[in-house]
Amino acid sequence: MEVFLAQLINGLALGSIYVLLVTGFNLMILVARIIQFAYPQFVVLSMYACWEVLRLTNNVFLAVFACISTSIVLNILSEPIFRRITNMKGIDINASFVASLGIAIVITDIMSHSLNYGFPIAFPTSWVEGSLARFGLIMISKGQLYALAGSIIAVLLFFYLLYRTKQGRLFRAIAENRFAARLIGIPIVKTSIFSYFIAGLLGGFIAILLSLLLGSASPWLGEFVALKILAVSIVAGLGNLRGGLVCGLCLGVTEAMAMGYLSGSWSNVVSFVIMLIIILIKPQGLFGTSIS
């Protein structure tokens, strides 16, 4: 029972980060019409930036700033590439996936060659350690709490932006009907760039939460997370934000449970097998997709 509760908390913390990642990924699908496979790589690279600044200056504010601005800059820099691809005649969304695959490969390889000599990075203990509450054997760590609380706040803010502000209305309009949005004079390019900005902001925030929760990162983390995020968003239905919320949380909990009851290397397989089975049964996703 105690293992169960501990893993449930862990799973919710992990799942809430997946939720944020899927949300950013889906935003790119909906507004920019791209499959941004490298999005999690950008997050991991931002974690590296955070770690580097923390190592050099030992200043938390600077580290957070570096993390978020790295993420925003990376996302904004990728915008012209993807805009060019989506504007090409006769080229579909697959091309954006292939290009982002290329970007992801480059980032992974640079991290595994040059950053920290290719070794995984570990955040200083002052950044991650400390348990906040303890009930018997169950311990809630600072990282878990930050991850959960941070994700809830971020998701609420994101949905507020999307459903309650003018900018969010433009996002939804473009996502739903690009032609009609253009017709009524919404500046598609400008709005789309803004969506990269939001995705970048969110990505930087995820990077901070992830480093608090995991306390470390490796060059292959991005690849691995990218795989999960693509899988989750397909299980939920590509571009389905609410589906992403549910499935992201489920993935986190499933993984944590598997970790609690199975040996390390098998625990990751469990969630992939489950997702694979769901996808094979429902290729269009559980909650339906808005992308044809």
């Binding site: 209305r169 939804r172 309009a173 739903e176 009907n177 032609f179 009609a180 017709l183």
Partner: peptide
């Protein structure tokens, strides 16, 4: 435009 182009989920 022709053919009722609206944002139907809004």
């Amino acid at each position: 435009p022709e053919g009722h182009v609206i944002f139907s989920s809004m």
